[in-house]
């Protein structure tokens, strides 16, 4: 399987994104920009805690010809011991009618933190991967997928 290592988001990028999200919340009334539902959701899940930038492997196609079946897989390096493991992983999409795609609950019995599934994408958009560790820390990464034919119907 081809693994694409996603670009690590720089601090500036994260600040820019978070700033953008705050801005859109504040100014959505004035229709300056559409609020980024996925980033709002990330803030909601992390309860405004700092979201760290670490090595996360998010494997999505660069171009999806059919938005109905887009393979998404991730692999997060973690020892998966009682002291240090990934508790929950969220996949979010900012261009779909609803930002949530899936939530995975991991346990130490699994030995590794990875999973694969298939999702629908309505248009070209960013996919976010948000990981919650057992010590309450958060980490995220994002990747853009170009969608040729949308897959949300309607």
């Amino acid at each position: 399987m081809k693994q694409i290592k996603m670009k690590i988001i720089s601090r500036r990028n994260v600040l820019h994104l978070l700033g953008g999200a705050t801005g859109s919340v504040l100014f959505s009334k004035y229709a300056l920009s559409k609020p980024n539902l996925a980033l709002n959701k990330i803030k909601e899940i992390s309860k405004n805690a700092k979201v760290d930038e670490v090595d996360l492997f998010l494997d999505v196609p660069e171009i999806a010809e059919n938005g109905n079946q887009v393979k998404v897989s991730f692999d997060i390096e973690s020892p998966m011991t009682e002291e240090d493991f990934v508790k929950t992983v969220y996949i979010l999409a900012d261009g779909n009618p609803a930002p949530n795609v899936a939530k995975f609950s991991f346990t130490t019995d699994m030995g590794a933190c990875s999973a694969t599934t298939r999702m629908r994408l309505s248009k070209t958009q960013n996919i976010y991967l948000l990981a919650e560790y057992n010590n309450g820390n958060f980490a995220m990464t994002k990747s853009k997928v170009k969608v040729t034919i949308g897959g949300c119907g309607g």
Binding site: N68, Q69, V70, S73, M80, A93, N96, P97, A98, N100, V101, A102, K103, F104, S105, F106, T107, D109, M110, G111, A112, C113, S114, A115, T116, T117, R118, M119, R120, L121, G151, C152
Partner: peptide
Amino acid sequence: KFNGKQVFGMDLEPSISTNPYIAFPFKAK
């Protein structure tokens, strides 16, 4: 569940494709 104990869980949203496919790891003990 493995031998009655929950080991993996997933919440699915409408954004998951028809015929949901899920793959995940497990450490055999």
